[in-house]
């Protein structure tokens, strides 16, 4: 079985994100980048499926991202993924979901696939659109926000569960299918040291737009981000502490009158 996993490089969730002065993006200094946490569930699910099936099953990571994303791809390889395709092209740096899905569809079409796992969303822009658009391009079913996955005994269907308000939704789908993974689906493994050693020898196939037969970014201009704005700061909260309630009220009234001038 050919298993594809989509991977995106995103700022570490522990990093505090600040918008740059021009409002064209984020301040990049000091930011650490990691594999999108939801993609880690996708990697783990791909590896589990491969281990279960054995034989000549193969997990291939497909990543569209900057040059430095090789480090994140290498981590996926160290976790046990067999090989990877890295789509790197400066023209794609500001690509929206439609463009990303069109490029990914081309690569995945060339690679061949039986099942595609991806994260339910990337934690950087939280668009959660690529998987659905990609499903349309490839003309296959898509199931989003999956928390339980199981391949049917005949290997031709998948049984899935989605966490919805107040319960679980059980589903069945034919293959090939694209599945976006939610937290709780599994516990992603670490990149072990033997894994890191083996990853050195695994292949990362680099492709740019021209290699894929695109003259320009597909779907260019379909969506455009106008400006990034920082969250407006909330007002400051001050606690008034006094032993007697009456004193606290007196202080509050005084502050409202003299400082805030609202009464």
């Amino acid at each position: 079985m050919k298993i594809i996993v989509l991977l995106k490089r995103v700022p570490d969730t522990e990093t505090k994100i600040l918008i740059n002065q021009e409002g064209t993006g984020i301040k990049e200094d000091g930011i650490k980048y990691v594999i999108n946490p939801y993609d880690e569930y996708a990697i783990e699910e791909g590896l589990k499926l491969k281990e279960k099936l054995g034989g000549d099953s193969k997990v291939t990571v497909v990543c569209m991202g900057v040059e430095e994303a090789t480090e994140n791809i290498r981590t996926a390889l160290a976790m046990g993924v067999d090989d990877a395709v890295h789509i790197v092209d400066p023209a794609l740096e500001k690509a929206g979901p439609f463009s990303a899905a069109a490029v990914l569809a081309k690569v995945i079409g060339e690679e061949g696939f039986d099942i595609i796992f991806c994260g339910k969303q990337a934690v950087d822009d939280d668009m959660a659109q690529v998987q659905s658009i990609l499903g349309e391009f490839l003309d296959i079913p898509q199931v989003n926000i999956v928390s339980v996955f199981e391949l049917a005994e005949d290997g031709k269907k998948a049984l899935l569960s989605r966490r919805i308000e107040g319960g679980d939704e059980r589903m069945e789908t034919s293959l090939p299918v694209i599945i976006s993974c939610d937290k709780g689906l599994n516990e992603p493994r670490y990149a072990s040291l033997p894994g890191i050693m083996k990853a050195k020898k695994k292949e990362i196939r680099r492709k740019n737009l021209a290699d894929l037969g695109f003259d320009e970014v597909p779907g260019k201009g379909r969506s455009r981000i106008l400006k990034w704005l920082p969250l407006s700061k909330g007002g400051e909260c001050r606690m008034i502490v006094a032993e007697e309630k009456a004193d606290a009220v007196r202080e509050l009234v005084q502050l409202l009158r003299e400082e805030s001038k609202v009464i």
Binding site: T70, E71, R74, Y190, A191, L193, I196
Partner: peptide, 14 residues
Amino acid sequence: TEEERMIQKTARDF
């Protein structure tokens, strides 16, 4: 190096 960062990250995550 990339490899050293990966080893450090696995140790840190663990």
